[in-house]
Design a protein around this nucleic acid. Structure first.
Length: 954
RNA sequence: GCCGGAGUGGUGGAAUUGGUAGACACGCUGGAUUCAAAAUCCUGUGCUUUCGGGCGUGCGGGUUCAAGUCCCGCCUCCGGUACCA
């Protein structure tokens, strides 16, 4: 009898639901273990074989931990707000909630097919009002708090207001922007609106002017990646920077803490480094340069205050607030032209250009506070508005960009660092001796930095400072399909938060999802919704990362209506022990989640400082893209396709374009010699009728309009395709749906094959052919239990030593591999064990029963079926993982490689307890060794017990 | 440019503390079974060879009795990032 996977899978899928096998309780004495997958955005395309890779690995891990006695939380849900559903709604009028629900259903059935042990009773969807009620609630908390620089934690905004009441702004305890100092009396005299404006500059969720990519033609705001070369990707319309009031989150307040606690996390070094670089901490000084003929001082940040004597000019970001007011009349045209030039350049262009320097002189001057010389103020795109202060002191002798700039515009260069003692050192090494710098002369760079800061402080023109690359997060989107803000404005424009009891603020019903006029969110069209009780609602919605920044907490207590999750549940589950997901979220999602988590920690809602203890990044599964060559020039008005062999032979690849073809039409898909035959060509034409009369030429003949004209009597046509490894994507017609594989081979086979492909972190191509190996393994396993004619052949006879040894080696190896996340080697261990048991003709229950348990995390269906066949009446997934019996692992003998000068020449099998002398003697007496000793003398022998024997000869 | 990762048979990969390079599979070769096919089973499979051996983990050096693994210098590919003051 063969294993009928379709029947068996259906049977157990039902059993698991009926018996609530995977339901997880919050009330148990067992230790907790939380395994989490990054939840998916339910796109219309459904899952492809790449998506479940991480889910399978985490499922195995979760099942294993459960068998090891842990209470394991392994939930799943959907990040169901997002742009694609909104885009689809604009095109078709289908409400995003409707299309999202449909997509979720498809995802659910695809996930169910794979036999995951998710506790679906805890499912969440970020677009569910019951869920986003709490996203809004957290937002209100952020709004109501600021960050105390003294306590290094969030404190209520009321306490800051109280501080101002008694102390004014002096020694302001909160992190933020204080535009001007005030006394307690001045504070008290301010109007409510003025007070609100000042407090806004300290709130962790705050409103400020931000710049967005505005496209007039499309009437909408675009994301950075929707803009190409200053034009919209869709339609190619001009895009400009537009100032709009936007909500932001003050993530920068947490920069230092996020940097520091990174060390303790079990994340890959690669990922930690990425986050460190993203936070980008740099130490330096804040210096003020008095402008000439203007009362203001230009504030700069520099990591090299030691080079201040070499600062011969200043550069402001083109967007800097003061550019207009300091530009002199004679320079107005030049500056305006330059601003126009910069405005037309996309952010990417501005950043990518490193070779050529551009800029304009404002006509204004500042005074270098150390040299007291007047230095010109320029503007250039290489200085960024959002980094540091948006202005720099330029030191052409010790900065590459400043140097290029000075050379191009003929500005003085003063050498201030003598680097002759450090040949080969680069500028970033910060090495050398200071020269031409008054009191700093002769100092090493390091000491000079300290001395310069000290002097700046004495002169009251600056101070030491730490700067971060990290920027506050823009939190407003002018979109429909996102969380509405729990925010309204009164007639004066003052912010009013929605009462907690009135949450959630739900989305208004709309039937047109296009943006409203003036770049406003579609919500602005719902006028009845917008105005309520004399207040005007915020019409922007929250960004994608809002819902995903805290979802892992909701799973702990998914249906709580009194809190985002109950205290008891949070105290029990604490944090995520293992988080599995793709590297694409390395900075965005993981940064925001850590920030929110730390904030909730400050408020006492979560007991842990970090949300994700251990993190595994899974690689991508790539697809093979099959192309056929299309000749660029038509032949008698007809398109012409050629066999790749002919194109290679022709040698002029530029005369052809490659067009991707649906992989279903390709024979030997994925192989190097994959091709389309006549049948495939016909299918291709049915798919792309515009090529009905196209010519298909290969070495065997020519096909056109249903007729094949052979060149040399061939009956077959093989149009060889070009196969390239690349993304698995709808646009390349190479998506492999897991449902199809599961239907043909079974879910167990699919799961094991994905794991067998290689290390989880690595990207690798999908190759359906290779699955045969796993399929054979499953049949072999089955044949240990049943004969071909369905006879159950498991016996109660005791097994021999070899069988016990095979089993125990397996149990030990699999446990280690699962903990190391090395699923591929675990699978091969199963193959080795089953091959061995097959050879031993072992059908003993005492071996097969633990074997089934060991395999259960990997192949949940077949093991459940075999477990039942073995006479058990509870689920195998509720049993314990087998214990290793050491006595079966002992080897009586060991086979040594016997080497001459490190090269293996013979082998020696000898008792495990033999001592070194015995081993050496036996090895030297081996026949194969004699000829090596004939001419040369052994001068040294190295014996590593249980490893190898090496003779050094000369 | 910078940061991170990786280069091992025809293919996916194994060798995790320096100790038999290529486990386990796919593919391919030959054979058994079959009317035939599928399935199954057996056999071989890094390259090379005068059958002793020689050469082999991206390239060039080095350390060591011994290097895929450690050190120095390169090359290529992938991912991230971007004039970060």
């Amino acid at each position: 009898m063969n294993f009928k996977h379709q029947e068996v899978e259906a049977k157990w899928r039902k059993y698991w639901v009926d018996n609530q096998t995977y339901k997880v309780s919050n009330n148990t004495d067992k230790p907790k273990f939380y395994v989490l997958d990054m939840f998916p955005y339910p796109s219309g395309a459904g899952l492809h074989v790449g998506h479940p890779l991480g889910y399978i690995a985490s499922d195995i891990y979760a099942r294993f931990k459960k068998m090891k006695g842990f209470n394991v939380l392994h939930p799943m849900g959907y990040d169901s707000f997002g742009l694609p559903a909104e885009q689809y709604a604009i095109q078709t009028g289908v409400h995003p909630a409707v299309s999202t629900a449909e997509n979720v259903e498809v995802y659910r059935s695809q996930l169910d097919n794979l036999g995951f042990n998710f506790d679906w009773s805890r499912e969440i969807q970020t677009s569910d009002p019951k869920y986003y009620k709490w996203t809004q609630w957290i937002f209100i908390q952020l709004y109501n708090h600021c960050y105390s620089v003294n306590d290094q934690k969030a404190i209520s905004i009321d306490s800051l207001s109280d501080y101002f009441d008694t102390n004014g702004s002096k020694n302001c305890p909160a992190y933020g922007e204080l535009e001007s100092e005030f006394t307690a009396e001045e504070w008290k005299a301010k109007s409510e609106l003025e007070k609100a404006d000042i407090l806004m500059n300290f709130r962790l969720a705050y409103r400020k002017v931000g710049y967005v990519n505005w496209c007039e033609e499309l009437g909408t705001v675009l994301a950075n990646d929707e803009v190409k070369d200053g034009l919209s990707e869709r339609g190619g319309y001009p895009v400009e920077k537009k100032a709009m009031k936007q909500w932001s989150l003050r993530i920068t307040a947490y920069a230092e803490r996020m940097l520091n606690s990174l060390d303790k996390l079990e994340w890959s070094d690669a990922l930690k480094t990425m986050q460190r670089n993203w936070i980008g901490r740099s130490e330096g000084a804040q210096l003020f340069f008095q402008m000439v003929d203007h009362p203001e001082k230009i504030e700069v940040f520099t990591t090299r205050p030691d080079t201040v004597f070499g600062a011969t000019f200043m550069v402001l970001a083109p967007e800097h607030d003061w550019v207009k007011q300091i530009t002199t009349e004679t320079q107005t045209k030049e500056v305006e032209d330059y601003l126009k030039y910069v405005g037309a350049r996309s952010e990417v262009e501005r950043m990518a250009e490193t070779k050529t320097v551009t800029g304009a002189f404002t006509g204004a001057y500042a005074i270098n506070p150390f040299t007291n010389k007047q230095i010109p103020i320029w503007i250039s795109e290489y200085v960024l508005k959002d980094y540091g202060t948006g202005a720099i002191m330029a030191v052409p002798s010790d900065d590459d960009r400043d140097n290029r700039f000075a050379k191009k515009f003929g500005i003085e260069i003063i050498d201030v660092v003598d680097k002759s003692d450090y040949p080969g050192a680069t500028l970033s090494d910060k090495l050398g001796k200071i020269i031409n710098s008054d009191f700093l002369n002769g100092m090493e760079v390091k000491d000079a930095i300290t001395a310069a800061i000290q002097k700046a402080e004495e002169l009251n023109i600056g101070t030491g400072r730490i700067n971060y690359r990290l920027r506050d997060a823009n939190y407003s989107r002018q979109r429909y399909w996102g969380e509405p803000f729990p925010i309204s404005y009164d007639t004066e424009g003052k912010v009013v938060t929605t009462d907690i009891e009135k949450l959630p603020v739900t989305l208004p019903e709309l039937d047109d999802f296009k943006p409203a006029s003036g770049g406003k969110s579609p919500l602005a069209r719902a006028e009845d919704w917008v105005s309520e009780g004399g207040l005007t609602k915020e019409t922007d919605t929250m960004p994608g990362f809002a819902g995903s920044s805290w979802y892992f907490l909701r799973y702990m207590d998914a249906h709580n209506d009194e809190a985002f999750a109950g205290k008891e549940a949070i105290d029990y589950w604490q944090d995520v022990d293992l988080y599995v997901g793709g590297t694409e979220h390395a900075v965005g999602h993981l940064m925001y989640s850590r920030f929110w988590h730390k904030f909730l920690y400050d408020l006492g809602y979560v007991p842990t400082k970090e949300p994700f203890k251990k993190l595994i990044n899974q690689g991508m599964i790539q697809g093979v893209i099959e192309y056929i060559y299309l000749q660029k020039e038509k032949v008698d008005g007809n398109a012409k396709f050629l066999c790749s062999g002919l194109v290679t032979h022709d040698g002029n690849e530029e005369n052809y374009t490659k067009i991707p073809i649906h992989i279903d039409y390709v024979t030997n898909y994925g192989a190097k010699d994959s091709y389309i035959n006549l049948d495939g060509i016909k299918k291709f034409i049915d798919w792309r009728p515009e090529f009905a009369n196209a010519i298909f030429e290969c070495s065997k003949g020519i096909y056109q309009s249903g007729k094949f004209t052979p060149k040399d009597g061939s009956t077959d046509s093989r149009l060889v395709t070009v196969s390239e490894t690349g993304k698995m994507s709808k646009r390349y017609f190479n998506v492999v749906n897991p449902d199809d594989i599961v239907h043909k081979y079974g879910a167990d086979c699919f799961r094991m094959y994905e794991m067998f492909l290689g290390p989880i972190e690595q990207s690798k191509p999908w190759d359906t052919q290779g699955i045969e190996g796993i399929s054979k393994f499953i049949r072999k396993l089955w044949s240990l239990f049943y004969t071909d004619d369905a006879q159950y052949i498991v016996t109660d006879d005791p097994a021999n030593k070899e069988a016990h040894k095979a089993l125990n080696k397996l149990v030990q190896k699999v446990e280690k591999d699962i903990l190391d996340f090395s699923m591929n080697t675990a699978i091969s261990a199963f193959m080795v064990a089953v091959n061995e048991l097959k050879k031993l003709k072992c059908h003993s229950k005492e071996i097969l029963q633990p074997l089934v348990k060991t395999l259960a995390p990997f192949a949940p269906f077949i093991t459940e079926e075999l477990w039942e066949a073995l006479g058990n009446n509870t689920s195998v997934h509720l049993t314990d993982y087998p214990a290793v019996e050491e006595k079966y692992l002992k080897e009586d003998s060991f086979t040594y490689p016997v080497c001459i000068n490190g090269k293996k020449r013979a082998s020696l099998t000898i008792g495990s307890d033999a001592d070194k002398d015995t081993i050496e003697k036996a090895a030297m007496e081996l026949d194969e060794m004699q000829k090596w000793f004939e001419e040369k003398q052994p001068i040294k022998t190295i014996i590593v017990p249980q490893k190898m024997i090496n003779f050094v000869v000369k």
